[in-house]
Design a protein around this nucleic acid. Structure first.
Lengths: 352, 352
DNA sequence: TTGTACGCGTTATCAC
DNA sequence: GTGATAACGCGTACAA
């Protein structure tokens, strides 16, 4: 950058330089310390000076320099978050809520995306830390040893969102994925279903998906039931995938009478495909999803699904991380409630 | 923060402090300047020193402090972007692409959201600038005088995404919304349609929506056609809204034979509602949308729509802003192509 | 090619 | 309550 080596160089105005708190102080006739206090701890400054300084500040349109502030205070006022993907229903809603909550408490959100790739996630975490985020919001709770170690050595707090478990080193904020699915199983069993199929989201690098799958398995086991291998499919999150996997699971013999889907897009695909191939829902087949996006209630046959208050996940995560940052009382995680929304894709098991 | 006023204080190791480039330099037996150069301009350092320094760096696991770097170099390596909303199809895809492109060139994306609120957008812009972003990616090109003035005084570059116009102060990267809609009108007219309805996205604080609406109007005018007031509806971006507004436009007499929707969700709602109320598509009514999300092709009746390469918008915007930052050749905007994807919601005008 | 030394714009400590 | 002033950790003219 351009340097100003001659301190006594005569600037047109005779003054010294343009930018900064220093100039505000000069014009207001106070010290730089006072200007700083007016911004960061207004009550420690007498009202007279405070208003005087404030006037100069917005007369000059001065904006404090975040980098200098960060360097000096060793805090950036930024929180990092790493999501597998940004554009998917529940995450998108959570991100919105997170941003609002952070913004309300004067923090900035730095958003990164891992694409469900464990290595990339570590890279992103490093980048965020390098940028000086004060805290980190992560999704899920299982990670590689290297990643775990990185987090351990970190001097900043972090939390796990979208999962809930009390026994993790860092607090969790999210629904109990397994329990939500177990409740869904209870409901379906109460309708008389005994033969189940599942279209799960790929469980690789995704402990929420794994928890949902295991939740289904364990709940079924409690009834002495199990999903036969051919009726168990895994796929990505797309409608097309849901269609394909529905056909697959329906090939199992005997055919399942209920299909449980691991996310909204898979469920939408399954429901659309059932209609397309002439399988009557819910008369011949019940289908349920996970996550309640607008589409779930607007499809020709509205879909029974698990509703998680994602906005609440986002907001709680934001508030919690700030509490940790600001050293609030013993911070503990939060289990975000989920509920089953019964619509028209579920019904009693077919007779024959 | 904790200060270290006694420079000669004997640390256990006899050395001075923990953090930093300084320590790397000491251990590697070089000057701080050399360490800095190894990072920022490797070729100006002899290979021997370079490797030696590199070894020390990753042996210590040292990570340069972004704030200090920013303060000293007056650049942060961060680009800000303000989107109306993050979770909607085309924006979500563009954001993903933007992040990848920026990341590839070692920049970070700071994302903000304006909720289609002009005041909030200015607030967010200020925040981003305060954070020291090197450049700004904005959506659309029309803004308040105050906002305009703010941008003028800014010493960092910015661009307008998702619109295209050659005559703006800052470059544009996006589709020609009006032209895309005009092409759609041409297509529908060629099918024989003469009575049109439109379900537009609210045009308040949204010049893309306005351009699409005007594009339709102007194109129709060239055929001597116009949309009657009762067949012209405006709404938010939701499926429910699309359903409601379809019913509204169909009440116009004589009833339109083709409905043009301003975005994907509105189109999905319109198509679903038509099916729900027993209006045959495309036999009795043609419906088209804008933006090609997965749902558009997966609905029971796949929807004819305008496809814009949003990923390309994101990527070009990212590359362009970096070019501006790094002072590349006379930077100019880019018109991103759009195309009409004909599916099954459009057909010849009904006879009667 | 390499080293020295200063300054980037704040915050925070200390004395008043 | 207010003012001096020393860091914060790095980049970079300039000298060597």
């Amino acid at each position: 950058m351009t340097r100003q080596n001659n301190q006594t160089a005569a600037t047109p105005q005779g003054a010294r330089k343009s930018t900064g708190l220093r100039q505000v102080a000069a014009i207001a006739g106070v010290s730089t310390a006072t200007v700083s206090r007016v911004l960061n701890n207004p009550h420690s400054v007498s009202e007279g000076l405070r208003t005087r300084v404030m006037m100069v500040i917005d007369q000059l349109g001065w904006v404090p320099n975040a980098a200098a502030r960060a360097l000096s205070s060793n805090r950036t006022g930024a929180v990092g978050a790493i999501f597998p993907t940004l554009g998917v229903g529940d995450f998108a809603r959570a991100i919105d809520a997170m941003q609002d909550a952070l913004s309300a408490r004067n923090y900035l959100l730095l958003l990164a995306r891992s694409r469900y790739d464990a290595d990339l996630e570590l890279v992103q975490a490093r980048k965020l830390v390098e940028r000086g985020v004060d805290g980190l919001i992560l999704v899920g709770r299982t990670r590689s040893a290297e990643y775990e170690q990185f987090l351990d050595r970190l001097s900043i707090p972090y939390l796990n969102a979208f999962v809930y478990d009390e026994a993790t080193p860092a607090p969790c904020v999210g629904p109990d994925n397994a329990r939500a699915m177990a409740e869904m199983v209870d409901y379906l069993v109460s309708l008389g279903h005994r033969r189940f199929g599942m279209i799960a989201q790929t469980t690789r690098n995704n402990d929420r998906a794994a928890a949902r799958r295991d939740g289904v398995r364990d709940a079924l086991a409690r009834y002495g039931l199990a999903i036969q291998p051919q009726a168990m499919a895994e796929g990505e999150w797309s409608i097309a995938e849901g269609r394909k996997l529905l056909r697959l699971t329906l090939e199992a013999t005997p055919r399942p009478t209920a299909i449980i889907c691991g996310n909204a897009l898979l469920a939408i695909g399954a429901v659309l495909e059932a209609a397309a191939i002439g399988v009557a829902v819910p008369e011949d087949l019940s289908i349920v999803g996970y996550d309640d996006t607008e589409m779930m209630s607007e499809l020709p046959t509205p879909v029974t699904t698990v509703r998680v208050a994602s906005e609440q996940v986002g907001q709680c995560a934001a508030d919690l991380i700030i509490d940790m940052l600001e050293g609030k009382s013993p911070v503990t995680g939060a289990r975000i409630p989920s509920e089953i929304v019964v619509r028209q894709t579920t019904g009693p098991v077919p007779h024959k």
